[in-house]
Design a protein around this nucleic acid. Structure first.
Lengths: 341, 341
DNA sequence: TATTAGCACTCATATGGTCTGAGTGCTAAC
DNA sequence: GTTAGCACTCAGACCATATGAGTGCTAATA
């Protein structure tokens, strides 16, 4: 059997109607909804064909049809190769001159959630491959040293380190010089035993302290857990098909945990700002089997990127979601570009 | 009518039984549950009295009794003046030498949520009254300046500032000296126009940049929003009385928003590590009318404190919650003390 | 050959009645 | 003051029936 023009029209009508109402749609509805001027009986025949082909299915014998995952997939694929759908421009409301990364991300997550009415998750860019740009050690009080580490992409990390012995201004200066000379331009993998050994040799009696400091720097860099922010997780209550306590509960746990989702988002890698759509069972996460997940990538600079995800019901307004994401990407790209100029 | 010993025993039995089961408790249950050796009929009479006095109530005519807010209140008050209830010692699993504040807090929230099976919220200590201990400006690249601000209590804030003009090493040194001389020991309120004017006068042609930097420092200090971390918010699904989608939804929104809750927690001020219990309607937040909220205060140093809150159903295991909180307080106090030595 | 009208059939959901059991309040006896 | 006994209440479970949206199939129509 062949998926001709008319079947496509009917399929699209079914999907769109279902996206709006969330109820199975019947032949009569389609007969009126489309401008094909066909009777419900004809539509029924076509629907029967579509069902046989696997694009739609019946929840139970005497109900209307709903799109299957295969149906959604077809619809989404059509959508993606469509013209860029223009969306209302969303603006991140960022005001201060020197917004910190995490504020931008939080704001972005919020904007998405509010605009789409789905739940959103955004991850900070990954550090692993970040090179150290600058290290600054400062004596805060007699017992603590503050280490500020700036990574490429202007990501700032700071850590307090306890020390047993007050350092003179001079030693501190020497330390600073040494750390920057040895570590600048390196990433975590490159801080190996040989580098550390060399540094200890030059430490002039402070070798234990140097080890401590290196330790702190390393742990602060490696921290495998990627920062992630969610927003609008309670939006899922707006969709009856997710709004039973078992589903909502597991879904919210996943959103609270974040870890699994983050991994899902990163597993496909830096796919050239492509937008990925996971429909229902396509997602590897058990808890999101009843949902669709749409992910996108934003770029800070070469090789440094983060991910945005939207989680909603299968009957997600894919068109709007994809549009909104595309939009936010450019918005974010601009912000980061401006940030660098 | 008088609340004699026997009525108290019965009331306590009712409450404890209801805490366990969540079901209204009947006279027969109490008759067996207590060692008073009274028939169910007698218990019924007593219960009738307790109801008249307002300590218990009937959800409907032919059901057992459940504690009223007044009943809970009595129970909680008794509990609080009781001996220190000993709890299993909970340990925060903190490993690294220089844990950052927010990690400690996140961990604490999690420990509480896991231990009690309720939702928890913890706020970072408030800054307002923090004095500036140390400011460090660093040139990160030709276009950006990094300002690291250390407040009393060793709270570190950092901000990137965009500048139009590269600074010489010398100017930077001068800036650093100046900012520390003028601002050290001040809190936000004390950075007034006169101080700022003086600084601009001494800036030697950089007055605009100085203004910018002061701006950033001020905004980063004032940031009214207190950092807050939640954990275990999905625990609320474990309690049938909260597990309908309307209630769960509003409750989770409040937990996600955090702001309202944070305010509730701070409104009672630094009540000498007292533990506050809000039962149902006693809470000023509409969304938690069906819940109880227990709050506690932890101290970092004189005048610097944060709050922990636990949100659960009215029939919360108050004894355990209060115990757990007391325990965590000491644990936190120790960590911060160690931190300072 | 494609479309349509008509009809029997299915089945989820709503409605309403009955039954059951847990629990009460009251009264009279102990 | 305590208890046994009994009538009463009422939420929730269970069941039967009605309703209506929707289907598939067949025969008539264009």
């Amino acid at each position: 059997m062949e998926l001709d023009e008319r079947k496509m029209t009917i399929l699209r009508a079914i999907i769109q109607n279902y996206l709006e109402t969330g109820e199975p749609v019947g032949s009569r509805t389609i007969s009126k909804y489309t401008d094909l001027n066909l009777s419900s009986a004809t539509i029924r025949n076509e629907m029967s064909d579509l069902e046989e082909m696997g694009y739609i299915l019946q929840p139970h014998t005497s109900a209307g049809r709903i799109p299957s995952d295969k149906g959604y997939r077809l619809y989404v694929d059509m959508l993606m190769q469509d013209k860029q759908t223009e969306m209302d421009n969303l603006k991140l409301e960022l005001n201060a001159k020197s917004e910190k990364l995490d504020n931008i991300l939080k704001e972005a997550a919020k904007v998405i959630a509010v605009n789409t009415n789905y739940a959103s998750l955004i991850t900070a860019p990954r550090y692993h491959k970040h090179r150290i740009k600058f290290i600054q050690l400062t004596q805060v009080d007699p017992e603590s040293l503050l280490a500020v580490i700036i990574l490429e992409g202007n990501i700032v990390k700071n850590n307090l380190i306890h020390i047993d012995e007050e350092l003179t201004q001079e030693t501190l200066l020497k330390f600073n010089l040494m750390f920057n000379t040895f570590l600048q331009g390196l990433d975590l993998q490159e801080i190996n035993a040989s580098v550390m050994q060399k540094m200890r040799n030059e430490s002039g009696g402070y070798s234990a302290m140097i080890s401590d400091i290196l330790d702190v720097i390393a742990t602060s860099l490696e921290s495998e857990e990627v920062e992630a922010y969610t927003s609008g997780s309670t939006n899922i209550f707006k969709y009856p098909e997710l709004n039973d306590s078992a589903k909502a509960s597991t879904l919210l746990s996943v959103l609270e945990e974040k870890k699994e989702l983050t991994e899902l988002m990163y597993q496909e890698g830096d796919s050239d700002r492509g937008i990925q759509v996971y429909i229902g069972d396509e997602s590897p996460i058990e808890a999101t089997k009843d949902c669709s997940v749409v992910t996108a990538t934003y770029h800070i600079e070469e090789g440094v990127y983060g991910k945005i995800g939207i989680i909603g019901p299968r009957r997600m307004d894919y068109e709007k979601v994809v549009g909104t994401l595309r939009n936010l990407m450019t918005e974010l790209d601009q912000i980061f570009r401006k940030d660098k100029e």
